[in-house]
């Protein structure tokens, strides 16, 4: 009786979020999955006939009449994955030492720093990216400063290059890497670090054998949280990237809004989805394995 009552209460509590996600997340996802196997309508929308060329265009089979295989899609997918991976690596390098530094600050300064790291969330992403546009453009702050210092004689072409896209993504993703990393570093048992030094391990050995494994959950968490939105990101390349900075997210956007090829856009979306799920699955199984040990 008690158990039954408990499950009723649980059901009532979980119903709103389940309904919300079911209606606004799962249902649209299923529609996209379905669309990706339909043929495109002439002026947008879909024709209700089974059609696998959407995937063929991307992965290498095509009828050669309506749909042509273009390696550019795989290239863009590859670029998206490598940009996202690069973003993960760079944010990690930036945040890891800072996390140690912050965890050693006094309570008051730690709060100040946590406020600063979350400060960007208080303003619009687009506005902040346009600020980067002003900084990076040939007559912008960065180039003007370098020119006036005599470091360079001509403005550097950074804007509308892959560099600008990665730079922008690193900027956007830093807080997402920092927070899980900080929590892991803050939970690091200082006594274990001392024990390692005491037992004769030098600083490098201590880092590799104790500090790194102990903070690995934070690194993995941060990496997943940064990688997933980075792969599908379209705002940053839209504002800062040119043709060479185009990512799969932009491709999806173009297919839905400009080319009006909804099924092809859906197929591209499903590929992003597959990548994300794979990454999540790997990280969850790894975390479970690590958790089983502890």
């Amino acid at each position: 009786m008690a158990i039954r009552r408990q499950s009723v209460v649980l059901g009532v509590l979980l119903a709103p979020v389940t309904l919300f996600l079911g209606f606004f997340f799962l249902l649209p996802l299923l529609i996209i999955a379905l669309y990706s196997f339909l043929s495109p309508g002439l002026y947008g929308g879909v024709e209700w006939t089974f059609y696998h060329w959407n995937y063929g265009r991307i992965f290498g089979w095509a009828d050669g009449i309506n749909e042509i295989f273009e390696p550019i899609y795989l290239q863009i997918l590859w670029r998206s994955l490598s940009f996202a991976a690069l973003t993960v690596v760079l944010t990690l390098i930036l945040c890891y030492p800072v996390a140690f530094w912050v965890s050693r600050l006094s309570e008051r300064w730690r709060l100040v720093f946590m406020f600063l790291i979350t400060l960007p969330f208080f303003s619009s992403l687009i506005v902040r990216l346009y600020a980067w546009l002003l900084i990076l453009k040939p007559t912008g702050l960065f180039n003007t400063a370098l020119l006036s210092l005599g470091v360079i004689s001509e403005p550097l072409e950074i804007l509308y290059t892959p560099t600008a896209v990665v730079l922008g993504m690193v900027y956007v993703m830093v807080p997402f890497m920092f927070l899980p990393l900080y929590s892991a570093v803050d939970n690091l048992d200082r006594a274990q670090v001392e024990a390692s030094l005491d037992l004769g391990a030098n600083r490098v050995q201590t880092f590799l054998k104790v500090i790194l494994p102990q903070t690995l959950p934070g690194i993995m968490g941060g990496a997943v949280i940064v990688f997933i939105p980075s792969v599908g990101n379209f705002v940053v390349p839209d504002v800062l990237g040119g043709a060479k900075g185009l990512m799969i997210g932009n491709l999806v956007e173009q297919q839905f809004l400009s080319a009006r090829n909804w099924p092809f856009g859906s197929a591209l979306s499903m590929i992003i989805m597959a990548v994300v799920l794979t990454v999540l699955l790997i990280s969850v199984t790894r975390a479970r394995k690590a958790g089983g040990h502890a």
């Binding site: 048992d189 274990q192 030094l197 004769g200 050995q205 104790v210």
Partner: peptide, 30 residues
Amino acid sequence: FRRPVNTVFQSYALFGHMTVARNVGYALEV
């Protein structure tokens, strides 16, 4: 790490991600 002195810590400070054997053998491992 250069002193021929070892410590038993108040909190024990065992390495949670290692087995007991690897904990014990740590000084030899490094």
